[in-house]
Amino acid sequence: MSRLQELNEARTAATHVIARIDNAIASLDSASSWGFFDLLGGGVFSSFIKREKIKDANSDIRGLSASLQVLNKELEDVHMHLPQEISNTMTDTMFDIWFDNIFTDVRVQGEIKESLRKLKDFRMSVIEIIAQLDAEIRALT
């Protein structure tokens, strides 16, 4: 397979990863909004909705893992590597919904914000890889 074809495949895989990251960010942004409402005393309903949004984000992150495996394989073909991994630390659904209290709400909101920051940082890393791939593709065409 030609170098140009390998680079194009890696770029395609990277754009799929960006789309997955964007979905996870959107889910976490929504969870964060509901979390803020929950902090203001939203009660069980807002905790439940927030947890549904976190569940959506976790699903997006699991889907992202599959996309990252494809991207890693394609990057190995062109001798490039991803700089970091994404961690998933959002738990405590039962405590957050059934034992709804300000302490749990504040901690969960902090976890959401930290996960958002990590996803956005990771997104920038993938964008940098796409830029490197694009530069090599331009050099070959």
Rank of each mutant, 00 (worst) to 15 (best):
G35H: 08
E52N: 15
D22K: 11
E52M: 10
D56W: 00
S65K: 15
I61F: 00
K55C: 07
S47K: 13
F45W: 12
K53F: 04
S30Y: 04
D22S: 15
A66V: 13
A57P: 03
A57H: 09
G42M: 11
A26W: 09
L28I: 06
A24S: 08
L71K: 06
K50R: 05
A66T: 14
A26H: 13
E52K: 15
A66H: 15
D56I: 02
L64N: 08
D29V: 07
I49R: 12
G35A: 05
W34Y: 10
K50G: 05
I61R: 01
F37Y: 08
G43S: 05
D38I: 00
D60S: 10
L64Q: 03
V70F: 05
F37D: 08
G42H: 05
L40I: 02
S59Q: 15
G42E: 04
S65Y: 14
A26T: 11
G63N: 14
S27Q: 10
S59K: 15
L28W: 10
D56Q: 09
S46W: 00
W34C: 00
I25P: 03
N23G: 13
D56P: 05
L71E: 05
F45Y: 15
N23T: 14
S32I: 09
S47V: 03
K50I: 00
I54E: 02
S47G: 08
S47I: 05
D38K: 00
G43D: 02
D60T: 03
S47E: 11
S67R: 03
A57L: 04
A24V: 07
A31W: 00
D22N: 15
S65F: 13
A66L: 13
K55H: 14
I25W: 06
L39F: 02
A31T: 00
F36W: 12
L28C: 04
Q69A: 11
A57R: 03
N72C: 02
D29Y: 03
Q69T: 14
S27A: 10
D60V: 04
N58P: 07
S27H: 10
S46I: 00
S67G: 11
S27F: 06
A31E: 03
K53R: 15
A57N: 04
V44D: 02
A26F: 10
V70G: 07
G42L: 06
G35N: 10
A31P: 01
R51P: 02
N72P: 01
K55I: 11
D56S: 09
F48I: 07
S32L: 12
R51G: 15
D56L: 04
A26K: 14
A26D: 10
I25D: 09
L28Q: 02
Q69W: 09
S30E: 14
E52A: 08
W34Q: 01
K55Q: 13
I54G: 01
L64Y: 05
